[in-house]
C-alpha cells in the first residue's frame, strides 16, 4: 500500500538556521503517528510545511500520490489535509457554529450571486453545511454551545473547537499541533476518547505533542526530532527505550 503522506528529504532553512534537515517521513492511511521532540526541534515547522504555510527549502511533499510541495494552504486544504494550531487560531469574534461552518468552506461552492439569489441549490448547500457542522460539534461535545462567541469558551473548549473546525471539511488527514496543551488530566482523557472516535471514522491522524503519556497511549508509531533531525522512529515502546531519545530529552550522563 502506498503512503497517504510522504515527505522526502524535506529541509527548511530560516536564514542561517536549519530548522528541519533532510527529514523523511511516511504515513499510512488509518495510522496515528506522533511527532515528538524537545522544544525547538522543528515539529511545528514540519506541520507548517505540510499545510503549505512555509515552502520547504528543499525536498518534496506527496499526499495521496500527488506532489503538493509549494502548494498554497487553501489548495492543500481542498486535497484533504486539515490542521489545528498550537497557539489557538480561532475566529474569535464569531460564534462557535460559524467557526465550524467556515471549516466547511472548501466543501461548498456558493459565491456572490448565489448568496444574493439564494436559489434552491444554495439553500440545500447551507443545509448540508449546517448538518455537518452540528455533527462535528456533537463529536467534540460543543453542540450546546453553538451560539456562544468563540472567545468566551474555556481554553480546553477552544482546543476542541479547533478540532471540530478541522473535521468539518471531512479531511483524509488531520494534523493536530499540541492538542492536549494546557488541558487538565480529565480533559486529556476526554480528548483521547475523542481521537479514538475520529480514528474510527477512518481519518488518519498526525500529531505533535509534549505529553508523553498521551502520545504513548494513542500512537501506532512515534518519530522523534531533535535539532531538525530525525533521531528515532518506531513503536512507543521502542522509542521510549532508545538511548538517543533519552539523551535528547534528559541530556547525556557525565561522570
Amino acid at each position: 500500500m502506498s503512503a497517504l503522506l510522504e515527505l522526502k528529504g524535506m529541509t527548511i532553512h530560516f536564514g542561517g538556521l536549519i530548522a528541519v534537515d533532510n527529514f523523511d517521513f511516511q504515513l499510512e492511511k488509518g495510522q496515528v503517528v506522533a511527532l515528538i521532540g524537545p522544544n525547538g526541534a522543528g515539529k511545528s515547522t514540519v506541520f507548517n510545511v505540510i499545510s503549505g504555510i512555509y515552502p520547504p527549502t528543499a525536498g518534496k511533499v506527496f499526499f495521496n500520490g500527488e506532489d503538493i510541495t509549494n502548494m498554497k494552504p487553501y489548495h492543500i486544504k481542498t486535497r484533504g489535509i486539515a490542521r489545528t494550531f498550537q497557539n489557538i487560531h480561532l475566529f474569535k469574534k464569531l460564534s462557535v457554529l460559524d467557526n465550524v461552518r467556515i471549516g466547511c468552506h472548501c466543501r461548498g461552492r456558493t459565491g456572490v450571486l448565489g448568496a444574493l439569489t439564494r436559489l434552491p441549490g444554495v439553500k440545500a448547500e447551507e443545509k448540508v453545511i449546517l448538518e455537518k457542522s452540528l455533527e462535528v460539534l456533537e463529536i467534540v461535545g460543543l453542540a450546546n454551545k453553538q451560539e456562544e462567541t468563540a472567545n468566551n469558551l474555556a481554553y480546553g473548549e477552544q482546543r476542541r473547537l479547533e478540532i471540530a473546525r478541522a473535521l468539518a471539511a471531512e479531511p483524509l488527514l488531520l494534523l493536530l499541533d499540541e492538542p492536549a496543551a494546557g488541558m487538565n488530566p480529565n480533559e486529556k482523557k476526554n480528548l483521547m476518547e475523542m481521537l479514538k472516535r475520529i480514528r474510527a471514522m477512518g481519518i488518519t491522524i498526525m500529531l505533535v505533542e509534549h505529553d508523553m503519556k498521551f502520545v504513548m497511549s494513542i500512537s501506532d508509531r512515534v518519530d522523534v526530532l531533535n535539532y531538525g533531525q530525525k533521531i528515532a522512529s518506531g513503536t512507543p515502546a521502542e522509542v521510549q527505550n532508545d538511548p538517543l531519545v533519552i539523551t535528547a530529552y534528559l541530556g547525556s550522563q557525565t561522570g
Binding site: 486539515a82 494550531f85 464569531l94 461548498g108 459565491g111
Partner: peptide, 19 residues
C-alpha cells in the same frame, strides 16, 4: 458562505487560509 469567508479573513487570515 461568501460572507463568512470575508469574516474569517478579518478574524484570522492564517486560519482562514488553512480553511
Amino acid at each position: 458562505r461568501f460572507g463568512r469567508a470575508l469574516l474569517a479573513i478579518r478574524e484570522d487570515e492564517i486560519a482562514a487560509e488553512s480553511m
